[in-house]
Design a protein around this nucleic acid. Sequence first.
DNA 1: ATCTCTGCAAAGGCTTTGCACATAG
DNA 2: CTATGTGCAAAGCCTTTGCAGAGAT
Lengths: 126, 126
Amino acid sequence: MERRTAQRESIQQVFARFNRPLSPQEVLKEARRRTPRLGLATVYRAIRALESEGRLHAVTISGQSPRYEWCDASHHHYFHCAACDQVFKLEGCADNLDRLVPKGFKIEGHEIMLSGKCPACRNPRR
Amino acid sequence: MERRTAQRESIQQVFARFNRPLSPQEVLKEARRRTPRLGLATVYRAIRALESEGRLHAVTISGQSPRYEWCDASHHHYFHCAACDQVFKLEGCADNLDRLVPKGFKIEGHEIMLSGKCPACRNPRR
DNA sequence: ATCTCTGCAAAGGCTTTGCACATAG
DNA sequence: CTATGTGCAAAGCCTTTGCAGAGAT
């Protein structure tokens, strides 16, 4: 049976508080504010468990280790700023993706990652 | 100055022959048919060099190590079969991606990864 | 002959695992 | 009390690097 522990609480709180994709290291750092002796292995174990329960999902940027994010009801895509390396969540979804695949393929999911410059990096003065 | 070696030839041939994203391991295995003593480090070095020359580019599937593919002139997207793990190249490109980002963001690139079942896996009999 | 490239093995990241102790139920 | 969860350290991937020798020019 699954137990409720201080560590898991802290980890889940971090995902809840930051509403964006976080790396295991970021999670560790933040969760340690509440649970100082927390170990990285526990973070990985918690992430894996939450992911397989479908409560967390991975967001990957080409060439980087995955970051994880709370699944909310909605489906969205991301924008990766090439300058500050932050990932932003976008509203809305592309349509007409069906026309990209030849006959016979069955689309069950899709991911879209936009990249470029975020407003802050685009306009550094002010 | 850059030298022409049997190893690099073999590696480039592999990318040319398979017209799809390949992992370093796959490249090693195939290139060794022609250059048996080829080492994995050499494959990585060649990939890195070709990538920074802009002749090869990385394709990443969430949670997997990157695969690399020859850059041809055109831009395309991919379909990842959840059953056989193969990656297929797609023709065409989504449009209207601009509407996904709020004002102030500058889109410089995008990646789309569709997933599901390829024709072969969808219809295993025959 | 020179200077780059290669193979090998060692070293580096990130992630997972083994194990004894801690602790929720 | 008992079985799951945790921290630590070790082990496992994948990728990069150091180095001496091989090979292209």
